[in-house]
Design a protein around this nucleic acid. Sequence first.
DNA 1: GGGAGCATGTAACGGGTTACATGATTGG
DNA 2: CCAATCATGTAACCCGTTACATGCTCCC
Lengths: 200, 200
Amino acid sequence: MSTAAEAPPPAELPPTAWAVLGLLSFERELSGYDLKKWADNSLRFFYWSPAASQIYAELKRLERLGFVTSRIAAQDDLRNKRLFAITPAGLVAIRGWVQHAPVEPPMLKHGVALRAWLGHLADPARLREMVAEHRDNSAALAEEASNAAASAAITKGWEYPALVSRWSQRYFEAEQRLAAEMLNDLDELAATLGDARRRR
Amino acid sequence: MSTAAEAPPPAELPPTAWAVLGLLSFERELSGYDLKKWADNSLRFFYWSPAASQIYAELKRLERLGFVTSRIAAQDDLRNKRLFAITPAGLVAIRGWVQHAPVEPPMLKHGVALRAWLGHLADPARLREMVAEHRDNSAALAEEASNAAASAAITKGWEYPALVSRWSQRYFEAEQRLAAEMLNDLDELAATLGDARRRR
DNA sequence: GGGAGCATGTAACGGGTTACATGATTGG
DNA sequence: CCAATCATGTAACCCGTTACATGCTCCC
């Protein structure tokens, strides 16, 4: 086709495996337990945070593939703790994935939207409650993302995580605004439908 | 606790089952095939559109539970086609779910954000490309949602779907804007990091 | 002493996907 | 006639979850 070198096909792995390997790509040794906590306050905002058991399973797979190595923690830490580190092969693999994986649409499962879509089956007041609760949850998440952004901003080498935390903050602010606008639309619709019902 | 009647606990079903039952709650008889198409251009925007095989499986389950009934299509349609309709019990069940299910955070798996989070592993130019592609995809989806909103708006009884289509449109417009802002942030970051590298 | 947190896993299950099989009808 | 679409499903597979089991350590 061309003289350019063909990109090697990126290894096929479930996204969670890449996420775990990605957490390790910041070059620190981490235990499965660490990874879970770390995922809970970073990945959570824009990507599902996997169950702990899943993390251990992925680590096992990644080790089998030679993308991570593990060692038992030093004697000063008496706990039975296994630390994982990314290998050169692992770095090559995840670079390939980040660089070459196709852009896919984000996967969204929005329960509140689904139930609003079925609004004809619910009490309008209850619908309002749901959307208002979602709006408040979004506000709280925006706040959390803001904190995450602040703490990432002061850490060297975390420029990209900080950037994405800012993105998350804006995302949840937008979600909050969208919920507020939906509330307005719901009120209008309730008024219209109420009128129609009364006029009948 | 109070004298108010306790709400009956909503039946436990996976979200996809409720989504399928919800599609049937608009009181029209639909085939599995119809349901798939219908999901593809409505649910898709705010909720994952299930695979066709999954829809048939859920229909079987819903029928076993007595939430839908089915009949073979009339003789004038020679195809081997089974039409499903919601039953009174099904209506009660889905009303209970819409009304009483807890508000849960939407589930988001944003591959582009994940890869931006791992930006230190990628070529900045490629990162830009990805985010720009995502921005354009979002714009296209906003347009599609807008069309869906327009066609729902002129259909009686589809007020809530129309409302959610408008919500989807705004959602994808926000997504588009967020992508554009991330591009700016990426450019800034590339400049900063580039400077640092040059000064080294 | 005892609860909270640290730490690692196994087992069972289920929801959902892809791939495949099958066949009829419609329209260019 | 042939491709596209209509139409329904089965089988294999796997990702990921919940529930559970186990034991250690820190600190009140």
